[in-house]
Each structure stands twice: as structure tokens, then as C-alpha cells.
Design a protein around this nucleic acid. Structure first.
Lengths: 338, 338
DNA sequence: TTGAAAGCGCTAACAC
DNA sequence: GTGTTAGCGCTTTCAA
């Protein structure tokens, strides 16, 4: 049973042709007579032969996959990005090799090294903050590097993203325009989620710009912040700063948790307190009441990244490989909670 | 910039040693003097050398990864399983190569073929229904095959899962014990989600066993069923069969959507209608009210699968490689909606 | 502790 | 349209 896998040699032997002819029979654009091709494919299928791409990869120096790092597999936003990326690359016969950093730049460093050892054709990372060694490895990799979900001040290579801080300026302005002044922010209490930290910074800057107190910051735990942590943080906020008029949560998940805490306490939303989130997760549009949020178009980030990668890999002239920054437009979705 | 990557030969040249010595310097258990090892590693780092695992894979016939197919990347249950699997394999230095079937056995067939071409050390598939060709490819692969999230009647190899139908028997009995008789089921209207279809079948069988009418079946669309589709289906149910006493939804996501539809209509839950879901997603425990559900312990499925794979790969005698079926216990979590 | 030779399974390049 | 030769970058094996 556990016999060693069949090789092209086995197929060639059975078909009475050379290994090279078998190889050609599997590439649809190569010169083999249609009769031999069919015969060889039939024999291969009967033998249970499975093409060995590890060998082809070594010989051709092409692996046909793109490495991608995301903070967590369990996050609908990043899942949408990866989905868009996978679908966009699939037509070109490329696959995605995914790795999870757990919101930890030390883990990211190990992961990037492991991924580069498998010789991807391009590498996509989430966010613009990395260890020095990670930056160096990416820079030296010789393959296209794309940073996403962010707009780094000093990009390593290409960028497909947006400014997380900017979104909070828009959200603060939205709430202020509704007459609210005492705004709070619920987010992680470490900077592991660098995009979440950027949003907190954006919140603080926007409050200051509006001449308002940016001090109502509630730490909800180590990122990522769950629904439950959002609920707990809302409890803390309601207990400690009961005159708060609105709260912006680092994500829709924590915003939903916060909403349920209000519901459990019988506190009207947005009557007594308004709630806003981030991410345009499905729950924001279906919860009762619906949640005001920012839609960063996660899937679009993925499809645009795929397009960029394919154009870079097909580029012949140097100009076409120049570092590109693709800004993704985001939208504020005003809903019932704010 | 786009120069060809450094090889061990480059490092060897720079260090004045043979390629073999460089190779040894990177394996921690091999015989090189500590001085040379340090020197070589330093030189390699300075040169920006990155180990090429594609070459090592070919030579050693080991790739150090496990292929995994899941229906959708955007599903917290499967994400948890993959998370448990990744973590369980990481200690052994193995990675996961993930592919998505989109709840489509034709796509699964293509995917399995692509994955096997990369020569994984084992392959994990979600569910127990596959095309004939998929079964054949898996059977002939010569590597451990693990079917998960199901208890197939005729397993291909190993199994780590549970009976989806059984969970619905427990849920129906739970509702009947509360005095409810007119029960409905909201699920997909195709069998693409085979586990969802199994749950619908389990619902029907359990109703019949209780002498109740199993005809209140609401089709909510093509799987996977979203929160919104759950809400729409609940609207259909309330309009067409308003005397329904309880509804079981194919997942917590659709159950939550159904709950919000009741909330929008001002219908008390569970006062007028009880709601149950499946999956023990975070939302079931945090929504207001909380949702009665089945916890299939998704992460445990992943960690048990990882343990099984590692023991199979380390097994020397044939007995230790005999097909195993690991049943995962699930639990009914009674909450406020039922 | 170190090195030389051979080869993993495939394909580019060149012959015929 | 088909075959031969060489070699991708490593590691196994054997020798020193």
C-alpha cells in the first residue's frame, strides 16, 4: 500500500515513450501528437500517477504560489481579503500559501522566513510594521512584496491599503456632527494589532483636532478583541464614565458585544449612548439595531493585490515593476446605533 | 536587485568550505565544529542567504506540510479547526497548506489534485462525501487521509468527527421536552453543505421518531447560509407558518439572523417562538438573548487530527497505521432562546 | 569533522 | 513530433 509514488519514468515505461514525451503530454501547449497525449494521459490515470510539482518547481524555479501572512485565520475581514486574493490568482493557476502571525511581529519574523524558504513568487503581508530582520528578509527576497491593510510611511515595496487613522477622523467627525462631545474608544491594550493601534491614535488626534477630551480610552485586553471583551469593556465604560455620549470600538465584533451589554442593562442605543465599530462585518448590517461602521472593502484589497501581483510577474520592463501604492477607498456606513 | 537568490554554493565559496559543510551547519544535530557552524551561519546571514526548501523537499522526499481542505475560509468553526491543527503540527515543524472547496465537490476534486501534486505528508478533508475520482486519488495517495467533521459510513482512511444527524436528535428532544411540538428547520436548499444536509436529515428523522410533522422545512438559499439569509428565512417562516413554536437553524449565524428578524417584528423569543442554532459560535454566547446551540468543539477536532497525524507519521509498525476513527463529543448548550 | 560523488523527478535546450 | 543530455539546489552515502 505505502509504495513509493509513481514517477514519469513509470508512465514512460508503460507507454513505451521517453520521459520527455510524458512531460509534454501534461503541458497542454507543447508539441505532442494528440493521439500520444491521450494515450499517455490515460495510462497515467490508470497507474494512479500524480504529477510531482516539487520536482518541477526546482527545475523551473517557479512554484506558482503566493505567500500571505494574516494576523488571524479567524477574522472575517482578512478572510475576505484572502478570498479575493485566491480567486484573483486562481485564473493564473496560482495558489495561496497562508500563515498566521497571531498579531505578533516576532511570530511574523519566523513565519516570513519559513514562507520565503518555500520560494513563493510574491509575498503579501498584512500591515506595515515589522521587525528589522523581517524587513531585511523581505527586501532581499527578490520577489514582489506587498504590504496591505495599511499605508506605511516607508513601504518595503508595494502597498495596497488605506490609512486606519484617517477612518477614525471621519468617524469622530460623524459623531461630533450629531452633537456628541464626550466620545470614548474601546480597543486593545497592547499594540499587537497595529491597525487597531493606528485607529486609536487616529481617534485621539481627531478628538484633539475637535478640541475635545481624548482621554476616554478603555483597554479591552490583548488583541484581537472579541465580542465578549467588547461587552466587558462597555460595562467598565458605563460604570466609570456614565456620561459618555458615544463609543467607537476597534471592530464591529467588539461593538456588537458593547451593544449587547447595553441591551442587558436596558440602556437605549443610541438614545443614551451611540456605538460605532469598524470593518463592516455582516453582523453590523443585520444586528438589531444595525451598527454604524467603516467599510474598508476587504475583498477589494485582495482582488487589487492579486491584479498587482499578476501584472508584476508579467512585467518585462523595469518601469512596470516600480513600487506601486494602491489606495483603497473606505466608506462610513451610518446605521441605527450612531 | 532582482538577482538570482544565493545558494549554499555561494555560502560555501564565501566560507571556504564545501557545500556539504554548509548544509550541515544548518541542521542543528549534525556533526560540524561549533566554530565553523557559527562562522557559516554568520556568513549566510550577511549574504542574505535563504535556505531553499524546494530542493531539500525533492532530495529528501519530505515536504513538512499537511494539506487541508475546508469548505470556506470565512467560517469561524473551520477556522478554529485549522487553528488547532496548525498549532498541533507546529511543534513538529510542520505547516498547513489550506485550500477552499466553496462547498462544491467538483471544486474539491480539482483542489485535492492540486494539493497532492505538492506532495503533502498527510491530507485532511472536511466531510465524508467526495466525488469518485477524489476518493480514488486520496486512496492511492500513499499518505494518511483524515476525514473530519463527519462520521462517514465508508471512510477512506482515518476519521476525526461526529454525527451531524445525531446532534439534531438531541436538539429536537430538547425542544420537545420543553413542550414544543411544531418545530421547523431553516437550512440550505441544496446539499452542497453536506453536514448541513445531514443535520436536516437528522431533524426529519428525529421529528418522525417523536411522531411529529417534519414538514416545516425552510430553504434559505445556497450554502453557506448567512445571517441575512437566516433573517429572510425567518420572515418566510413567520409569514407562512405563524403557529411554529420553535425553529432549528443550520448554524448559529442563521439563527442569529432569525433572532434579529423576530426582534425587528417585535416577536418575543422564546416567548412566541424558540430558536436554536449549531456551532457554538461566539455570537451564540453573547447575543441578547443568548442562543441555544450545539458545541461540536471545532478546535478539538483540529488538535486531535494533529495528534493523529503525528502518531501516524512516526509509526513504524503497520498496526499503528491502522485506520482510526476518533469520535469527538459534542454538547448541547441550552441558552435563553430555547 | 569534512569532502566528493551521485541523484531526488522534472524540464530547458538542443538534436534528429 | 520525439529523444538525449544536463542540471535545478539540496542531502544521502561513502570515503578520508
Amino acid at each position: 500500500m505505502q509504495q513509493s509514488p509513481k514517477t514519469m519514468k513509470d508512465v514512460a515505461l508503460a507507454a513505451g515513450v521517453s520521459v520527455m514525451t510524458v512531460s509534454r503530454a501534461f503541458k497542454s501547449d507543447s508539441s505532442v501528437s494528440e493521439a500520444t497525449r491521450m494515450r499517455i494521459r490515460k495510462i497515467a490515470e490508470d497507474l494512479g500517477y500524480v504529477f510531482d510539482s516539487t520536482a518541477a518547481n526546482l527545475r523551473t524555479q517557479k512554484t506558482n504560489f503566493v505567500a500571505v501572512t494574516i494576523p488571524s485565520i479567524n477574522n472575517a475581514n482578512f478572510a475576505d481579503t484572502v478570498g479575493g486574493l485566491s480567486d484573483g490568482l486562481a485564473d493564473a493557476g496560482m495558489q495561496v500559501l497562508l500563515g498566521y502571525t497571531g498579531y505578533d511581529i516576532a511570530k511574523e519574523e519566523v513565519l516570513v522566513e519559513q514562507l520565503l524558504q518555500r520560494r513563493p513568487e510574491a509575498i503579501v503581508v498584512t500591515g506595515g510594521r515589522h521587525s528589522e530582520r523581517t524587513r531585511r528578509m523581505l527586501q532581499n527576497s527578490g520577489i514582489p512584496v506587498i504590504e496591505t491593510w495599511d499605508l506605511p510611511a516607508h513601504p518595503i515595496g508595494h502597498v495596497v491599503g488605506f490609512s486606519n487613522a484617517d477612518t477614525m477622523h471621519a468617524m469622530v467627525d460623524h459623531l461630533v456632527a450629531k452633537g456628541m462631545r464626550r466620545l470614548a474608544f474601546i480597543g486593545g491594550d497592547t499594540d499587537g494589532d497595529t491597525r487597531g493601534a493606528d485607529r486609536r491614535r487616529g481617534f485621539i488626534a481627531a478628538m484633539q483636532r475637535n478640541g475635545l477630551d481624548p482621554g476616554r480610552l478603555i483597554g479591552a485586553g490583548k488583541p484581537p478583541i472579541s465580542m465578549r471583551e467588547g461587552a466587558v469593556a462597555m460595562g467598565v465604560l458605563l460604570d466609570s464614565l456614565p456620561d459618555t455620549e458615544a463609543v467607537i470600538c476597534v471592530s464591529d465584533l467588539s461593538a456588537f458585544g458593547a451593544l449587547t451589554e447595553c441591551q442587558r442593562r436596558g440602556i437605549p442605543v443610541p438614545g443614551q449612548i451611540a456605538i460605532a465599530g469598524f470593518g463592516a462585518y455582516e453582523i453590523a448590517g443585520i444586528s438589531h439595531p444595525t451598527i454604524t461602521t467603516i467599510d474598508p472593502h476587504p475583498r477589494l484589497i485582495g482582488t487589487e493585490t492579486a491584479k498587482l501581483i499578476l501584472s508584476l510577474l508579467n512585467a518585462t520592463d523595469k518601469a512596470a515593476r516600480a513600487p506601486a501604492t494602491i489606495r483603497i477607498e473606505w466608506h462610513l456606513r451610518s446605521a441605527e446605533t450612531a
